[in-house]
Computed example of a mutant assay.
Amino acid sequence: MRWQNSVRVVTIAATLLLTSTAAQAQNAEQTPVAANGILSVCGKTLCNGSGVPVQLRGMSTHGLQWYSQCVNDQSLDALAQDWQADVLRISMYIQEGGYEEDPARFTEMVDQYVEEASERGLYAIIDWHMLDPGDPYYNLDRAKTFFTEMAKRHKDKTNVLYEIANEPSGVDWARIKSYAEELIPVIRAADPDSVVLVGTRAWSSLGVSDGADEREVVDNPVNAENILYTFHFYAASHGTEYLDALSRAADQLPMFVTEFGTQEATGDGGDDFGMAEQYIDLMAAKNISWTNWNYSDDARSGAVFKEGTCENGPYPGTGQLKPAGAWVRERVM
């Protein structure tokens, strides 16, 4: 399988950088990870092992407690080969029937999906999908246990990123920052080189959903290296105010959009492809990596597959995709 456009290499002087390893790999029989190696944060963007800026594009799973059946050999082959994705975000809820209920089961499940992504040469985001309650400190001890285990198991891999707080809410930025500064050293103790993704206030909106903006993070950043800050949006609910905040933030902070949809903030309802395209264009222009929500056959419009697809497939092509699925597949490709 030819891995065309495996990771999008962003250049300021493209003609000079076309000789880079990453650019050459665009026409080679290489997976995204083989082409780019271990990632790091360089300045305000994500860079590959050669120091060349890259933009990852891919998909997030739905909650593993509900839709693990959609993450299988055939669907992952389609994501890697047909969609030509770079990254899989593995979303493990903590409450809502997730990790809190059976830590051993969900630890093994996430581990399995990291291995599956690795076999296909995809980057893997281990998503600590805290949602309710929104205070990350509520699960601090659980997070330390889980990420200690994940970092030990995957410290020798070049493709693993750690997202330590999906959508903090109901707390101020200082508390989220404090949580990050307590948890990041736990990961670094076993895996000192991997990138860590830090959630922002008000459901990873940079505080916009609570009437704030990116300045609270710009003025008081997390005291850690090799990190990115996350931003989430749903195009039918989050218009120009959110788009402008992301744009301003990306000029001052390394950003990663780890979750977005073309629908309303519920992940359902009508699609606003026009606003979503504005976000896609901005993320391309400012080299912001992204994963779309979500790679499942949930009944909501934000799930890419039609209901019932995960039972038997097929997964390649557009025949089983909802409108949002066909739209995002094209943009991943």
Rank of each mutant, 00 (worst) to 15 (best):
Q4Y: 15
V7H: 06
R8V: 11
V9R: 03
T11R: 15
T11H: 15
I12G: 12
A22Q: 06
Q24D: 07
N27P: 09
A28R: 12
A34W: 11
M59G: 05
Q65F: 08
Q65I: 10
Q69L: 11
C70M: 06
N72Q: 01
Q74S: 08
S75H: 07
D77A: 12
L79N: 04
W83E: 01
S91D: 03
E96A: 12
G98Y: 06
D102N: 15
T107D: 01
E115N: 13
A117I: 07
S118Y: 00
E119A: 15
I126G: 08
P133K: 03
G134E: 04
D135L: 09
N139D: 15
R142V: 13
A143R: 08
T145A: 14
F147I: 04
E149V: 12
K152N: 06
K152C: 04
R153I: 08
Y162P: 02
N166G: 02
R175H: 04
K177E: 10
A180R: 02
I184E: 06
I184H: 05
R188L: 01
R188G: 05
V196N: 00
L197D: 02
R201E: 14
L206E: 00
G211I: 03
E214G: 14
E214P: 03
P221A: 10
L228H: 09
Y229G: 09
Y229S: 02
F231T: 11
Y234S: 02
S237V: 05
H238G: 02
L246M: 13
S247T: 13
D251Y: 01
F256W: 08
A265W: 06
D272T: 07
E277K: 07
A285V: 03
N287F: 03
W290G: 13
W293I: 13
S296G: 14
D298V: 15
D298G: 15
A299H: 02
V304W: 06
F305P: 04
C310K: 09
P314E: 07
P316V: 10
P316Y: 10
K322I: 01
P323T: 03
A324E: 13
G325A: 02
W327K: 12
V328E: 03
E330A: 12
E330D: 10
M333Y: 12
